[in-house]
């Protein structure tokens, strides 16, 4: 095949999808995955008893705010890492800000807790179940997010995979919040954070293969 002929054929379809389409597509598919994960949480694990009562609802919304912010930053990072020539600096800054800000808040939470109760505050009732549950729930969000992310053209597929994992992990953690009744900030940052981090690592491993183009 001659290169000139290839050009002639490629030129038949010049109008391309706009740059926003990839973002919308991945938001749509990972959002559907998040709904599935939420369904699984409610049906299989049960919603927390106080979900519809004032303090419980406020706590859920607070936790969801943080985990959704992680997901949004994951989407932002993917949208930068997935475009050749685009700079990801501000998205990285947002990620670092969320991480450092979260750890600082966890530190304040523990500092305000009496020394004898700190360990109990951090571990809550479900410290080890939490990251594992998030990792398992992330299968519902990671799979569609990863497939949608294949439309991007990442120069570093593993990094883009990690960003996809951050998106998927943040959504899975939000869904898990429907069940989990832990209220401590330090618990949220450390154990939810660990679950999201694990999903990011899984995403990096999958992305290194699946996001090559």
């Amino acid at each position: 095949m001659k290169t000139d002929d290839l050009i002639a054929v490629l030129a038949l379809e010049s109008r391309g999808p706009g740059p926003g389409r990839l973002r919308r597509q991945i938001a749509l598919w990972s959002g559907l995955g998040a709904l599935a994960a939420a369904g699984v949480v409610v049906v299989a694990m049960g919603a927390r008893a106080d979900l519809m009562q004032g303090p419980g609802l406020a706590n859920f919304i607070g936790k969801a705010g943080y985990t959704l912010a992680l997901a949004v930053v994951g989407l932002w990072l993917l949208d930068r890492l997935g475009r050749p020539g685009a700079r990801a600096r501000r998205a990285w800054m947002a990620f670092i800000l969320l991480t450092v800000g979260g750890l600082a808040a966890a530190g304040v939470d523990l500092a305000l807790t009496p020394a004898g109760a700190r360990y109990a505050q951090l571990m809550g009732q479900s410290a080890l179940i939490c990251p594992l549950a998030i990792l398992i729930l992330s299968l519902f969000t990671l799979a569609p997010a990863m497939l949608a992310a294949r439309g991007f053209a990442p120069l570093k597929p593993a990094a883009a995979g990690a960003a996809t994992g951050l998106l998927a992990g943040g959504l899975a953690a939000t869904a898990y919040g429907l069940h989990c009744s832990e209220t401590a900030v330090s618990f949220l940052v450390v154990w939810y954070g660990l679950g999201v981090l694990a999903t990011g690592a899984l995403g990096a491993m999958i992305g290194a293969r699946l996001l090559r183009w």
Partner: peptide, 9 residues
Amino acid sequence: KRATYDSRL
């Protein structure tokens, strides 16, 4: 991959 080109760049 032309959808990954951001026309602002």
